[in-house]
Design a protein around this nucleic acid. Sequence first.
DNA 1: TTGAAAGCGCTACCAA
DNA 2: TTGGTAGCGCTTTCAA
Lengths: 331, 331
Amino acid sequence: MASKITLKQLASILGVSISTISKALNDSHEISDATKKRIVELAKLHNYRPNKIALGLKSGRTNTIAVVIPSVQNSFFARALYGIESVISQTKYSTIVCLTKESHDKEVDNFDMLSNGVVDGFIVAVSEETQTLEDFSHFEDAINDEKSLVMFDRVIDSIPCTKVTTNDHTAISEATQGLIKSNRKNIILLSAINNLNVGKQRTKGYQKAMADAGLTPIVLTSDRNGVANTLKEFIKNNPLDAVIALDTDASFASYKVARDLDKKIPQDMAVIGYVSERMAPYLAPELTTINQHSYTMGKTAATLLIEQLENKSNNDHSVVIDSTLSQRASS
Amino acid sequence: MASKITLKQLASILGVSISTISKALNDSHEISDATKKRIVELAKLHNYRPNKIALGLKSGRTNTIAVVIPSVQNSFFARALYGIESVISQTKYSTIVCLTKESHDKEVDNFDMLSNGVVDGFIVAVSEETQTLEDFSHFEDAINDEKSLVMFDRVIDSIPCTKVTTNDHTAISEATQGLIKSNRKNIILLSAINNLNVGKQRTKGYQKAMADAGLTPIVLTSDRNGVANTLKEFIKNNPLDAVIALDTDASFASYKVARDLDKKIPQDMAVIGYVSERMAPYLAPELTTINQHSYTMGKTAATLLIEQLENKSNNDHSVVIDSTLSQRASS
DNA sequence: TTGAAAGCGCTACCAA
DNA sequence: TTGGTAGCGCTTTCAA
């Protein structure tokens, strides 16, 4: 069946006016049941679907929202996206996903591209580069364009919009305190993401807890590939009885180094890490993690955006989702 | 700065006609350099951006393509998406990502929603339910609507469109043969994805290799959570010297069971699995994997779609990306 | 109960 | 070199 039939064509087939067709299909009371029926039947026969673009032009709204995130390979964002999608798909809205790869240019491009009539709102986790450059004009433009905007996880305080964050800082502080309470003294922090703001935030939580306890914080940073060696070199020359690993690579690397150097987890070396809840039980021993509840964060961000879109309430409130410690055998 | 300025407004500010503005902004030779300059300056001042929706209505094309995939939590699709995105973002096109969660309804909804003027083409990995129900009318409709269509990984043979697949069947056959050659006799296949067609395809490759060698194939299936126990129970009552694990959960579970039962990998039990190339080296011993080159598959699918979009060549050809064995220490 | 016409923002054809 | 106008597909007054 050749598709792509328009109101106009339908009208000429039936020999009625376009507006009659339009009204009938929208079940207007202005149209008699008889003609309504004829029209609906013909439309069904031809598999008529209203052209979304034309509707968008007319109404100024497209019922589409954009999710702009750095990556989808990172399990945090993958799961957050899942949460977002599960909310949006229950509504009349659909989702555009854009990946920035932490690039400011890409982020700006996406906003430019989508702001002009393509989407009604944005859910964004701000790219690293944008945070570094402190160039936020694309966000301001979007707000001026009367787009709804929700930031999650990576947020910019100075932009007036709804924000969904996690209290990472606190969670990691508490985790550190827990380690201290169980008599660990040489607690180091291992990170393959200290180029990222998130990494720095988490680091602060650790440093504060250590300082409060009168202990010296030690932060080991590296890139993804070098993280295992960085830790290994450190252990060879320094005492260590606990590691807090800031990301998946650092977490797995800690286990690898423990094996290589014949250190028992948690006896010789406790480990607390960031790994998806699905993965954690597969490690031996099972890894104690800091759970950021990515799915919930995504759902929350989406719910808030939808509310804003519907009420047009120019809301600018913040929600904090508590990160929690998932205690397992490694600490 | 209030945005959302239109040609019409620009025209009234400058006291010229809309078409003059349009032409000037498109750098038409019909317009004098002087007025062109005035207009471009004003446009820049007001941060004018053409309305994408209006352009779409006019041209019948939107320069947007949809990627319709089951999930993004699965590292295969996450990486494939990365490949797709890296190609698309080099072009004038942008990407809409839709997640079907293996649901036929969601897949059909997405196609319905996007076919009417929203996107120019589709890249799709067919959902499991669609394969089971064998209801492919949404693909046919899309083709009738003259949308470009590329399927990857999960493809439907009977639909005339470009396809990018992998020769999983062969790769796993060869892996099995390798195991046999190194004198493994009791090789079992472990799968948490045998509800999926992909799983069944892979299983066939294993079965064929075993049968060819005169060995009895043994297929252990389970869901994600039960997979470790399924293997454990089997080992307690049966001889086993190699495991081929069809998915990430089965792969990790094999390691867990080996630890629990004090089996050495690969001495007592060889393991070949499906795990992202990033993860494999973290396992002890490092896991031999079947690498599907997800990134390459994504890039290829996107490249083919773009070509089709540009040439309007109604291409219907297939590309096979070889899966390869990444030999590591576990086998 | 039905239809004609305007208009969403833009491009392109044809006149001036 | 510039401007008027039609039209993309649709909704929505206002008239008939």
